[in-house]
């Protein structure tokens, strides 16, 4: 592919829900150019007759009822637990209440 642009990088960052500070963009673009160039070695492989794997073993288990974790245990790591829920800041129509 052609070299990544700042716009490409920002688009991928948006999809990944990550922010890239403006000052880091040139270094990130160079890193990605290097990595993508490295990955291009795969273009030398002949995969015309190769099938992607669909044979990996997956175990099927009986659908049995078992005990779930107590709600308070599940909530113990929440920033603001309010059993049986956790709360987050309210955002209304894009603005914070």
């Amino acid at each position: 592919m052609s070299a990544w642009t700042k716009q490409d990088l920002e688009n991928i960052a948006k999809l990944a829900k990550l922010a890239i500070p403006e000052k880091d963009i040139p270094a990130r673009l160079q890193e990605f150019a290097d990595i993508l160039k490295y990955i291009e070695v795969l273009n030398q492989a002949n995969i015309e007759t190769t099938q992607a794997n669909t044979q990996d073993h997956l175990s099927m288990y009986n659908d049995e009822v078992s005990t779930s974790l107590p709600i308070d245990a599940v909530l113990q790591n929440a920033v603001e637990p309010e059993s049986p829920f956790f709360t987050i800041p309210a955002f209304i129509e894009g603005g914070k209440s």
Binding site: K17, A19, P89, K96
Partner: peptide, 22 residues
């Protein structure tokens, strides 16, 4: 949102995801 570091001082839910992860 549920059990990780949370940066809640943002203008939108989407920004909260982005800032918390970043």
């Amino acid at each position: 949102i549920r059990y990780t570091l949370q940066e809640g001082r943002t203008e939108s839910l989407d920004q909260m995801y982005v800032q918390s992860r970043s």
